[in-house]
């Protein structure tokens, strides 16, 4: 999408008057739809639609060996796939840079043990642990990918059920795991502290959250903040452009304020989802 100067000015003036082109104020989000348990053969999954942005996340679990320097911890890996369905620019290897950027930010946001406790995923110290593969598929791009992806990941992790281990038999170097036969015997992950990301976008003299594609084009610089409860777990500036130190601080404050509210709304919604509400793509 490319905008002409007149269109950019229109958006700029709208932001200055706290009345954006789609009627929102500067701190407003577009409507978000969320569904969980949509990929049946995954351990946990979620689909999130933020206006036009469509994200599908599935969590798969495998048994792995812990890293030698972290014998008490399990593993988590983020993989982002930008499907060509979203835009023809992603064809072939076109979406790879964006995908790597997204997965790196997610990895650093989940790195701190205070945000997501990997110790719960350890099965046997130094020998066996669970590895979570969080696979993110971007099906449609309508701006603000970072926020949408982080919300979808949190929802999918919330939905993830880790199988229960009944017993561990150690025979020399061999470790045998006895997984419970009952598929309903499983543990939920604790995601209360898992971060949500907020993209704060500077347009003109003001900062906005949840920019749509047109607004992203007008921004002079944006930063992504990952908020875990009220703490920052990652702050990164993305794209081109530079921010003054003072603006940076004020946008961090805005990001934190919005992030806390967003997290509350997400947790509230997730706790109200019941298993008979899902429609998937056929809705």
């Amino acid at each position: 999408m490319s905008l002409c100067d007149a269109e950019k000015t229109f958006i700029l003036h709208g932001v200055a008057e706290n009345f954006r082109s789609d009627g929102r104020d500067r701190e407003g989000y577009r409507p978000i739809e969320i569904e969980t348990d949509i990929v049946q053969h995954a351990f946990g999954s979620a689909r999130l639609r933020l206006a036009n942005t469509d994200i599908l996340v599935a969590v798969k679990i495998e048994v792995d060996t812990p890293l030698p320097e972290r014998p008490f911890e399990g593993k988590i890996e983020f993989f982002v796939d930008c499907s060509a369905n979203a835009t023809p620019d992603f064809e072939g290897r076109g979406g790879e840079t964006l995908a790597i950027e997204l997965s790196n930010i997610l990895a650093s946001a989940y790195k701190s043990p205070k945000t997501f406790n990997l110790k719960k995923l350890c099965i046997l110290k130094g020998k066996k642990c669970w590895k979570l593969y969080v696979d993110i598929l971007i099906l449609e791009c309508g701006g603000n990918l970072f926020d949408a992806v982080s919300l979808a990941v949190k929802a999918a992790l919330f939905n993830t059920k880790v199988p229960l281990i009944k017993s561990v038999n150690i025979d020399g170097d061999n470790v045998e795991l006895d997984v419970s036969d009952n598929v309903f015997d499983c543990e939920r992950l604790d995601v209360t502290n898992a971060p949500v990301m907020v993209t704060v976008c500077k347009i003109g003299d003001n900062c906005v959250v949840d920019p749509n594609l047109a607004e992203e084009q007008c921004s002079v610089g944006s930063i992504v903040v990952a908020i875990s409860q009220e703490y920052f777990s990652t702050v990164t500036s993305i794209g081109i452009g530079s921010l003054h130190a003072q603006t940076l601080c004020s946008s961090l404050e805005l990001g934190q304020k919005v992030g806390i509210r967003l997290n509350e709304a997400l947790m509230d919604t997730l706790s109200h989802i019941t298993s008979d509400q899902d429609f998937g793509f056929l809705k």
Binding site: H41, A58, K60, D81, S83, Y133, D135
Partner: peptide, 11 residues
């Protein structure tokens, strides 16, 4: 043609 990494039983 592309296949989501989680589309099969084995990732």
């Amino acid at each position: 043609f592309s296949m989501a990494v989680f589309s099969t039983n084995e990732r």
